[in-house]
Amino acid sequence: MNLHGFDLDLTRPGLSGVYFVGVNDLDHLARAAARDELDVCRTDLAGCRDKNELLRRLAVSLQLPASFGHNWDALADCLRDLGWLPAWGHVLLFDHADELRQAAAADYDILLGILDDAATFGAEHDRPWFAFLALPDSAFDERPAA
């Protein structure tokens, strides 16, 4: 996705979700979220090759509570309730998401499901909740096999 000329209204909970964007779009999204007084959390996945490293990076970037259990269920619970981050909505930005996708496809797919669930939960509770995963342009050119 190229955001040039396109602005997603990050203040509308009904638009909450998981979006794939180009590598150059994250800075624009971070500025838009900050302008709208949303919490912005940026996680760099460069070199991230598995679930354990992913969870470690998310614990740091999201400032997860010390009680975070470092497993998928704990991540899902934390992302549904980001109450320790004082904001009326949340925007999660993932740099280099393709590295995890290439190295650990199953972990990547689980992450997407957890993010989607959290976004749905946010929308149902009238809170903007967005996740943007930056992928290289080549990822948008891939066509599924027939």
Rank of each mutant, 00 (worst) to 15 (best):
E142A: 07
L92P: 03
D137T: 09
G47Y: 01
V60S: 12
Y108D: 14
S138H: 06
R56M: 13
L29F: 01
D77T: 13
D36S: 12
R80S: 06
G22W: 06
G89F: 00
E37L: 08
V21L: 12
E124S: 12
Q63P: 04
D116P: 02
H28M: 15
G14W: 03
L92K: 03
F6Q: 15
W88L: 09
K51P: 10
G122H: 05
D107H: 04
N24I: 14
D137R: 11
N24G: 15
L93Y: 02
A131E: 03
Q102T: 14
R49D: 14
F68E: 11
I110Y: 13
D126P: 00
A145T: 10
R101E: 15
T11F: 01
D107W: 04
V21R: 10
L58N: 08
L85C: 06
R49L: 14
R143V: 07
R80E: 13
R12V: 13
E37F: 02
R42T: 13
D73H: 08
C41F: 05
D25G: 00
L58H: 09
D25F: 04
L62E: 14
V40N: 11
G17A: 09
F94P: 01
A33N: 10
D107C: 10
F121C: 07
Q102I: 14
L54T: 05
L3A: 08
E53H: 04
V23I: 15
D141S: 05
N24M: 08
H28I: 12
R42Q: 12
A74T: 00
S61Y: 02
S16Q: 10
D27W: 02
R57F: 09
A134K: 02
P144I: 05
L26I: 06
P136I: 00
A34W: 04
Y19H: 14
L112Y: 05
C48S: 11
A123G: 06
G69Q: 10
G113C: 12
D50C: 10
H90R: 11
A139G: 01
A118K: 06
A30F: 05
T120M: 14
A123P: 07
L111A: 10
D141P: 02
A118Y: 03
C78P: 01
D95T: 00
L111W: 01
L64H: 09
R57S: 14
A145S: 10
F132H: 03
H70M: 13
A87K: 08
L100F: 07
R80V: 01
L115C: 10
L38A: 09
N71S: 05
C41K: 12
F68A: 06
V91M: 05
D81K: 07
E99F: 06
A66W: 05
G47R: 07
A87N: 00
V21Q: 03
P144N: 09
A146Q: 05
E37V: 00
V23F: 05
D77W: 02
L115V: 04
F130T: 01
A123F: 02
L93T: 00
G113I: 06
A103H: 12
L64R: 09
V91G: 13
D7I: 13
L10Q: 09
G14P: 07
G89Q: 00
R127C: 12
D81H: 11
L135F: 00
R127F: 04
L8F: 08
D44L: 03
W88A: 08
L75H: 03
